[in-house]
Simulated assay, not measured.
Amino acid sequence: MTPCVAPPGWPAQVRPPDAPDWERTAASWLLDLCPADYRGYPGLRRHVVVLARFAVLYVEAGQAACRRGLSEARADLREVASDEVIDAAIQTFQLEESRLLGIRRAVGLVEEALRGRRYVARL
């Protein structure tokens, strides 16, 4: 029997692929990433791979929002905030962009596993 292996970047809240209840833990984690309203859609709760696709798109939208916020912050905020406040906003966008990059990798790994991809331990 091959041991269950989770690749680098796999979310700690999700059991490795093929571990007992791993898909349940994946669904729970994915729902936590998405808007609360997603919990009300029975199709997303029944079909975890579809939920994963929704989560990927949701995270990517957040990444796009961060990129837009970074590119427009100085122009959009200069009349309503000091340079210090704008710099803090830019730093916050950068931190969020970094956080979302890791989440996007993790969501992608979970989606691939739900679609049948398995990972092999390397020495």
Rank of each mutant, 00 (worst) to 15 (best):
D21Y: 02
V48H: 02
A12P: 04
A6T: 10
C34S: 10
Q13M: 10
D21T: 12
D76A: 15
L44V: 04
E60H: 09
L30Q: 03
L31N: 08
H47R: 14
D83C: 12
V5W: 02
L31C: 02
G9M: 00
E72I: 08
A55I: 07
L44Q: 00
A26P: 10
L33P: 05
L57N: 09
H47M: 09
D32Q: 00
Y41K: 07
D76V: 15
A61M: 07
A12Q: 13
R68M: 04
D32S: 06
C34M: 10
L51W: 08
A36L: 13
A52F: 00
P8D: 03
V80M: 07
P16Y: 00
G9S: 01
R53C: 05
D21A: 14
A55G: 05
Q13H: 04
A81S: 13
C4F: 01
A81Y: 14
D83L: 06
Y58T: 14
R46V: 03
A26N: 01
A64Y: 03
H47F: 13
A55L: 05
A65K: 11
A6L: 06
G69P: 07
D76N: 15
V50L: 11
R68Q: 15
Q63K: 01
R78Q: 13
D76H: 13
A27H: 03
Q13P: 11
P8W: 00
V85T: 15
A61E: 03
P16F: 05
R39V: 00
D37G: 11
L30I: 05
R74Q: 15
L33I: 13
V48S: 05
S28R: 12
S82P: 13
Y58P: 00
T25N: 01
P20E: 00
V14P: 09
A12Y: 09
G40Y: 08
E84V: 12
P17Y: 00
E79I: 08
R67D: 15
E79G: 09
D76S: 15
P11E: 05
A52C: 06
G40K: 02
A19C: 10
G62I: 03
G40Q: 02
A36R: 00
D18P: 05
V5T: 09
T25Q: 04
W22Y: 06
Y38S: 10
D37K: 11
A81T: 12
H47T: 10
R67F: 14
A36Y: 01
D76R: 10
A73D: 03
L31M: 09
D21F: 15
A12R: 14
D18K: 11
A26R: 00
A81Q: 05
E84R: 14
A75E: 14
G40E: 02
W22C: 12
R15S: 13
G69C: 03
A19W: 05
F54E: 14
G69S: 07
A12W: 09
W22Q: 07
A12N: 05
R46A: 09
V50T: 13
V48F: 03
Q13F: 01
P42I: 02
R39E: 14
E23G: 07
W29M: 08
P16I: 12
A55T: 15
P42Y: 02
D21H: 13
P35H: 14
V5P: 06
R15Y: 12
W29G: 10
G62Q: 10
R39I: 01
E23L: 06
W22K: 11
R67S: 15
D37C: 13
C34K: 04
V50N: 01
R15H: 15
